[in-house]
Design a binder for these strands. Sequence first.
DNA 1: GACGCCGGGTTTTTT
DNA 2: ACCCGGCGTC
Length: 735
Amino acid sequence: MLADSILEGLNPEQRRAVETTEGPLLVLAGAGSGKTRVLTSRIAYLIGVCGIPAESILGVTFTNKAAGEMRERVEKTLGPSAGGLWLSTFHSMCVRILRRDIGALERSRGFVIYDDADSLGICKQVLKRHGLDPRQYEPKRLRWRIDEWKNQGLLPADAASQAADIDDELSAELYGTYQRLLFDANALDFGDLLLQTVELFKRAPQVLDWYQRRWQYVLVDEYQDTNRVQYQLVRMLAASHGNLCVVGDPDQSVYAWRGADIRNILDFEEDYPNAKVIKLERNYRSTQPILSGATAVVENNLGRKKKNMFTEREGGELIHFFEAENEREEASFVVGRILHASRNEGRSLGEFAILYRTNSQSRAFEEELLKYDLPYVVVGGVRFYERAEIKDILCYLRLLVNPDDAQALSRIVNKPARGIGKTTLERVEALAAEREISLRAALGAFAREGAARRTAGKIREFLDLLQDLDRFAERPVDEIIAEVLERSGYMKALVAEDNPDAEVRIDNLRELVASAEDFHAVNTGSEGEERSELELYLDQVALISDLDSYEHKPQSVSLMTAHSAKGLEYGVVFLVGMEEGVFPHANSSYDEERLEEERRLCYVGMTRAMEQLFLTCARERRRFGSHSYQSPSRFLREVPEELMQVQHSPGRGQRSSRTRASRRTREDRLDRSYSQETHDEEGGIQRGTRVRHSVFGLGTIEGVSGEGVNQKLKIKFDRAGIKTVMVRYANLELA
DNA sequence: GACGCCGGGTTTTTT
DNA sequence: ACCCGGCGTC
């Protein structure tokens, strides 16, 4: 009965992938082949049909979002019997393991997780301690090198023994110092979460044994994106029983730059000799021209495992191609098509996605969407938890959990300004290094011994503040944050700034408090946890990505990089910026392997489309503030001509007939309309002014930012709430 | 120690 | 064009 309902609607290959429960299994799942469905059905089958307890199953994905969706779908099929199932990302799985068992490595379970910025800060410290000039040996390069080693599963000693030249030897030594500083701060960086878990399993076999017994069935999603450490981790976990199911698509491997090793999936059959292989080649997503076009592109990669993808969605529109004069025209074309299709084809805005190679490309499209008041969501870019003000407050919180957190301490020691500046901090850091004590201890010591009376007083005040805050550590997180904002004087200092920029930051902090309230509300159920709410909160924010919080809004256009779009699908996709140097990216254009990765990324982008796919490029584009002229992407030439249909600029003649002169008039016209609009608003713009917006109605100006044509207004509308609009597009009237 | 100006790098993709 | 860090001035 249950078996039937789980297997119902699966094609023979999918069904086989679900029913082959024992032993190593590789599922090669092409784009749109129902991979997630297979994974969730398989889990449901293991629990509901084979009678495997949910807690014996481990499912690993790359994003929290994917894990959450999978859990949701399994629970829908099975109800409460899915409880105890472990579905998580590699990173959060490792955090949970380490929180429980890192004691076996003689480390404290109360470690904090360092993000990229913290790691970079440590790198700077390392260079300082080795007396190296950061201009000569760049902190970023060191950070990158260390990350690379960690992705390969190498500790400082391994790195040193493999060093090929003097430069590598030095770097390996710096890596050693880096690890010591992390250790002293009781911190682990992203790479450590994986690396130290492998290390734990190596050094404490009884711990590994415990997890091997616990998880009798291991599933890994997006296996083509695993790096060497993740590979080792999976191998260790599945070693005793071999019940390992990995799902992936070599054609969608786009994270080699982050250490992903495509060999992991290509060599699976060698690594696990009795492995079974199932290919899912039937595409349920895209129409024929889209699938054929995308496949034609990726077939230009050499050394690729051949797949024969097919779709039953015969017919369908050809792939549309549009070449714009510049990025403004490109954006205007895309948004024009969205307007047209949403009005005439009855599509909701949520069915459209604009995909690009780099985050910086979002801007032109955002401005154009703003112009027509079309709601949109940008995924990625500057992440919420990385904004300066948010990080500041999180650093205060981190210090409540881990007083040794040197990065957190040095970040907030003078935020808000409290008279403990750079010079003092440098002296304290030197003292900490010299006596091998924590930064916090060094602060105290400096106040007692080295500091001028004035400075000593300020340091004491600061240390008192931290101590004062400590008593809130066990309270709900939103309350702790509120206390920090209040008692540190952080909020007061921001309010005193009294400018639109500070107001945005205040809003962000309010949002932080609100999201912490949510966390508290959701989290109150899990009482039995021995870890405090604050600790759980910090773990979560450290591992959350922008993509995780991306909710598909049915009434908003989605904007994101092709990388972020992996695993998602949309009715209409615009893959924009198809120019040499942009896509493929200039940095990847001269290396065959990297170029192939760009090509796979193009394949990923194209296969996100279900019914309509638009490829666009611009002849001219502003980059780094100056003009650049690029030829159309080579990937465009790789799409068979008969699958493409050239679009022409709306309201204008054929491309060939367009002359410089006619373009000139157009630009003149645009220029005129801008200056006119700006002129209309002159003198009327300031806080408190009442204005009327054609869509949002009456509102009060709350803030002004930007200059000239880029001037933006933050307006509190009586009915529509607070919105930021660009003056030149908003069509405002004084009310 | 705070503030402001200047110069250089930046935009590759992110758990 | 923008952001950040470094350096000089107050």
